[in-house]
Structure formats: C-alpha cells, structure tokens
Amino acid sequence: MSTTETPASGIGPVEGDSLYSVDNPAPVIEPPRKRTKKTPKSTRGNFELAAWLFMRLSGVVLVVLVIGHLLIQLVLDGGVSKIGFAFVAGRWASPFWQVWDLLMLWLAMLHGANGLRTVINDYAERPNTRLWLKGLLYTATVFTILLGTLVIFTFDPNIR
C-alpha cells in the first residue's frame, strides 16, 4: 500500500490553507466602532456639530463687525490719527458700541480658539502634546475674554 498522502482534491497544498471551516467559522465582525483600547467608548454628541455651525455663523457676523470696526477706527473721519483716549471714552459711553465691542471680542476669541482647537486636533500627534496645547489655548482664551469684558464694563473715562 502506498504511504504517500494524496490530497483529496488532487490539488497540491495551497500556500496558507484557509483559516476557516464549518467547525471553525470566521469571526463575526461587530458593527459598532471599536478601534483601539484608547478610543473612548462614546465620542458621539453634538459638540462637534455645534462647533462647526458656530464657526460658520460667527464668521458671517464677524465679517460685519470687524469691517465696521476697521472702517470706524482707521478709515472714516480722519482715519487713525483721531484715535486717542478721548475717542475710545466717547465711543464706550454708548451702550451700542459697548455691545458691539463685547460681541466682537467674544465671537472673535471663540472663533479663533475653536479654529486653533481643530488645528491642534489635526496636527498634534501625541495625546500629551494635545492636552498641553489645548490647556494653554483655553487658558489664554478665557483670560483674554474675561479681561476684555471687564475693561468694557468697568471703563472709567475719568481715570487719572
């Protein structure tokens, strides 16, 4: 009797036999997102949606606010030479300009901070780098917004 093993199909052994069979089926692939151990369970939510929408809306409003601001400050009525303590004091005496400047400050700071946040997300590779850069960004943003708001509301034209 011949002892040579002949594959049943007559075809030689295929390189890398099929891993799976009826008794050993291929694993079922779960649909939910699971990529790495570090990936958080649920990263869904509407924050990114809101941030995306905010960028567009604040951008549109800022175009009006900033161009208006630049025109008043630098172009109209004598241009930059008219700006002085008295000019600023005169403008901030009116609630309209206070609200204008406040809105511009908040929108510009949040718009810029959110833009930088996405830049950090896109370019910082290590989680620690991200954490520190974002921490720095948020600190600077909060500080600037609070300081600016404080100045707009507590501005004293009679300061000596």
């Binding site: 997102r33 869904r44 990114e48 995306w52 996405t118």
Partner: peptide, 14 residues
C-alpha cells in the same frame, strides 16, 4: 448619521 456625528466623523472634514 448618528455614527457620523462622532468626534471623528464628518465634522473633521476640512
């Protein structure tokens, strides 16, 4: 849509 509303979903498109 809910899946793509993820932090790493469509909103990361630049």
């Amino acid at each position: 849509l809910e899946i793509l509303n993820d932090k790493d979903g469509v909103w990361r498109c630049r």
